[in-house]
């Protein structure tokens, strides 16, 4: 498959190089929010949404920075604009649909410091994606994050019922489960070959 095609970009971001399980981005919210399925799903959708916003913003900033030949401002500009964009999105959702805000609201501040968003923007820049590819990559990254989160929350809900040694409860066991899940995702490698 042509690595520039949109289908490939989508598959690559969501499955082959899954942001969480293969590229280790957004581990903090992944460990923090994946305990229950009912929080994992809205968090996932909030991330997809913010990914889109951040993808568009980062693409625009990068074009401006290339125009002014100032690549050294990239990190500052990305983080500042992504953080402000999330704030604006939060305000807009609050004004537009209070119901949606109640569903997503508590997750939005968490997402600002989510390195998956920043990482997605930086990866898309490093791969020199054009606008449509960046957009597709952002959606794919968000979908991949949601998929990992939902799978993980399902596993952890089952784990609640399992009889494990007391010292293994919590972070240690979650990480080992994540490792096994990550191994399962390795099966997707070669999908684009």
């Amino acid at each position: 498959m042509n690595p520039d095609s949109l289908t490939y970009v989508l598959l690559d971001a969501s499955l082959v190089n899954n942001l969480v399980l293969a590229s280790f981005l957004g581990i903090c919210p992944f460990l923090g929010v994946s305990a229950k399925n009912e929080t994992a799903v809205p968090m996932g959708f909030a991330v997809i949404f913010v990914m889109l916003v951040a993808g568009v913003c980062s693409y625009a900033i990068n074009q401006i920075l290339i125009y002014f030949d100032a690549p050294y401002l990239r990190i500052i500009a990305y983080i500042a604009v992504i953080a402000s964009a999330v704030q604006l999105v939060e305000m807009f959702i609050k004004w537009f649909s209070p119901t949606l805000f109640r569903a997503l609201g508590i997750f939005l501040p968490l997402i600002t410091t989510n390195c998956a968003i920043m990482g997605m923007a930086l990866f898309a820049t490093a791969r020199e994606y054009n606008f449509m590819q960046t957009l597709t990559y952002a959606i794919g990254g968000g979908v991949g994050f949601t998929l990992a989160l939902i799978l993980m929350s399902g596993l952890r809900e089952q784990l609640e019922l399992a009889d494990v040694p007391s010292f293994a409860r919590g972070a240690a066991l979650t990480l080992i489960i994540a490792g096994i899940l990550s191994m399962a995702f390795m099966g997707f490698a070669g999908l684009g070959g």
Binding site: S23, F24, F167, A168, A172, L173, I176, G179, I180, M183
Partner: peptide, 25 residues
């Protein structure tokens, strides 16, 4: 080889945490 691939990161950190939690308990 799995240890230098992504799953290894999760497994080794999980292993260290397990060891520390066991020692603490």
């Amino acid at each position: 080889a799995i240890m230098i691939l992504p799953p290894g990161g999760f497994l080794v950190l999980g292993g260290w945490l397990l060891l520390f939690a066991w020692a603490r308990e």
